[in-house]
Design a protein around this nucleic acid. Structure first.
Length: 589
DNA sequence: TGGTTCAGCGCC
DNA sequence: AAAGGGCGCTGAACCA
């Protein structure tokens, strides 16, 4: 393999003459992993016979980036070219900052490919190069110590990506994953880039005000608890001038809570953890409530502390200079094919807390002149369950357009809440024992109810059984889009019961995840067809998208978004998208 | 000091 | 024997 290091503008011309841009791998080196302040250091490329590293630190002129590629490739005329990256989202986000995109090319992401091929292991380039290609790995920190080492490191990234692509391309075909990869996964990466570069505007002032309100509340509740327990404490001032309490008790410690609840207050333990200690969780406190005035204050304290520590104290650290939060959406983060989100995790923002009247979602707002639109699939997973099990009764229930949980409730003569819990429970593989705990009845009674349920929804029962048979025969299960989930036998040679639950749930969750991907691809097209809307896709929360659109076009956009989302699949059950609007996320939901 | 595990809890 | 799927983040406790 020929190796070329490009350090001058002239050398760019030279390498281009002999490089094959029809199909090549690409990797970028940057100064930082953080989108807002990262700068490009270099680009490595590999076409199978040559590896090139273009050192922009040496060239010291970013205006020549476009000269590194044939103009047809970046001007969207060159339609039969393949660009391979390990984590396209990262590299293309960086290049986008320098005005470079490969929108006309076909993308091949080796990280995403590996996730489809082996969802149970890690997908880092270094891990794969070592495990699959057998290369020795040098860490980034070590490579950074000398220029020569760093060049080698950068060249290797492009080489390994190239070699992995050759292997994975074959593997995707063999496992019938190619359509899913090319028609859903690769186009969807553009949606992730759209969301991650747009970011979500936040109301800094709202965050700060509520943060102080919560700090005061936590302080007050802590004082009350110490008073009730008769514990000594003193006041302290932090460096920022906030008052705090110093005592021998830490109410965040499960050990301390164990001592207080079950020794000092003499309350009866409810459950134990797997390491044998008494649980001090929400469920326990709920059962103990009423036995002692301390419990209710502790519950409030836990709620306030959680909001404070997990959200209000940390959200500020993620705010970019333009007052936007840019979450990472991880396409390869789950075994089921769902997206995950981190830094911060937008998929776990608390709903409004009525008793404290605190709404984290209120801090996430629309850009000036725009309004947020939130669109979610109504009962997505249950509709998918009805479809994949082809259950006549369930399909009819959805077709009627009535409230599905209420219909179930009427049919079995139970409350809506109970009906809802069984509908979801079944999709998760919950057992009679599990239901009996929830409903406060015997296991036999729960079993009788389950039998009745499966008698009515016999298609569901049948598909659960078929799923188990398929798993036992093949060691994996595959969804309607061809996505697979593989399972391992335990040391005794059979699949644990959890595998059967996970397998069946995967059929629902995995398909739903691809359904939201297809919707995203179509929604991005909708955006491009209507530039005057200035529509941005901002976030994806499992069965929901968040957008911002110029106010004037809100109604038009809402109608189109709803239509787009409802037409992604052709199912026997209707697919319904519910749309809301507002100036902040709490209001729009 | 920095890493891991555990318990707990937020969301879909 | 356990007994509902999927995540990420927090602080405490523990360990080297």
């Amino acid at each position: 393999m020929r190796e070329i290091i490009v350090k001058t503008k002239e050398e760019i011309k030279t390498f281009k003459e002999s490089f094959n841009f029809k199909c090549f791998s690409l990797d970028t080196e940057t100064t930082s992993l953080n989108y807002s302040n990262q700068e490009l250091e270099g680009i490595s490329l590999c076409d199978g016979s040559t590896i090139v590293y273009i050192d922009f630190v040496s060239i010291n002129d970013y205006s020549v980036i476009k000269d590194c590629f044939p103009s047809e490739l970046i001007s969207s005329k060159f339609r039969d070219c393949i660009v391979i990256c390990h984590n396209c989202v990262f590299d293309f986000k960086v290049l986008k900052k320098y005005g470079l995109s490969f929108n006309s090319a076909e993308w091949f992401d080796t990280m995403v490919a590996h996730h489809l091929i082996d969802e149970n292991s890690k997908h880092g380039l270094k891990e794969l190069a070592n495990k699959i290609l057998g290369y020795d790995i040098v860490s980034y920190e070590v490579a950074k110590k000398s220029k020569e080492l760093f060049y080698k490191y950068a060249l290797n990234d492009a080489l390994w990506t190239w070699e992995l692509a050759i292997l994975f391309s074959k593997e995707l075909k063999e496992q019938s994953l190619e359509m899913l990869f090319r028609k859903i996964e690769m186009p969807f990466l553009r949606v992730i880039i759209e969301m991650e570069t747009n970011g979500f505007l936040v109301d800094k002032e709202e965050i700060v005000i509520t943060k102080h309100k919560l700090r005061d509340l936590v302080f007050e509740l802590e004082k009350q608890m110490l008073d009730i327990l008769g514990e000594k404490y003193v006041f302290q001032y932090t460096l920022t001038g906030e008052m705090s309490i110093k005592s021998n008790i830490n109410f965040n410690s499960t050990e301390h809570l164990n001592n207080i609840l079950f020794k000092k207050l003499g309350l009866q333990p409810i459950e134990t953890t797997k390491t044998g200690k008494n649980k001090t969780n929400k469920k326990t406190l709920n059962i103990l409530k009423g036995k002692h005035e301390f419990i209710e204050i502790l519950e409030q304290y836990k709620t306030a502390q959680k909001l404070l520590n997990s959200f209000y104290e940390t959200l500020e650290n993620y705010i970019d200079p333009d007052t936007k939060i840019r979450t990472h959406f991880n396409d390869t983060g789950t075994r089921t094919g769902r997206l995950s989100s981190n830094s911060p995790n937008l998929q776990q923002l608390p709903k409004k807390n009525e008793s404290l009247s605190i709404d984290v979602r209120k801090c996430f707002i629309a850009s000036p002149g725009k309004k947020l639109i939130v669109a979610d699939y109504s009962g997505q997973e249950l509709r998918v369950l009805a479809q994949i099990s082809n259950d006549t009764a369930m399909i009819e229930a959805f077709k009627s357009g009535k409230d599905f949980h209420q219909e179930t409730a009427n049919q079995f003569g139970v409350s809506r809440t109970i009906a809802k819990s069984i509908n979801f429970g079944v999709a998760y593989g919950k057992s009679a024992k599990g239901f009996s705990n929830d409903w406060n009845c015997t296991e036999e009674e729960a079993q009788q109810f389950l039998d009745k349920y499966f008698n009515s929804f016999s298609g569901v029962k049948k598909s659960i059984d078929e799923c188990a048979i398929f798993l036992r025969r093949n060691g994996y299960i595959k969804s309607l889009t061809g996505r697979r989930r593989r399972f391992s036998k335990n040391e005794k040679g059979y699949y644990p019961s959890s595998a059967y639950r996970q397998a069946f749930n995967f059929l629902i969750q995995g398909f739903s995840a691809d359904m939201i991907r297809i919707a995203g691809i179509k929604l991005l097209n909708l955006k491009h067809r209507n530039p005057e809307w200035k529509m941005n896709i901002i976030a994806c929360i499992h069965d929901e998208y968040v957008f911002e659109v110029t106010e004037k076009y809100i109604n038009e956009a809402k109608t189109s978004i709803k239509e787009t989302m409802e037409s992604v699949v052709n199912f026997k059950v209707p697919i319904i998208s519910e749309i809301g609007e507002g100036y902040n996320y709490g209001e729009a939901k």
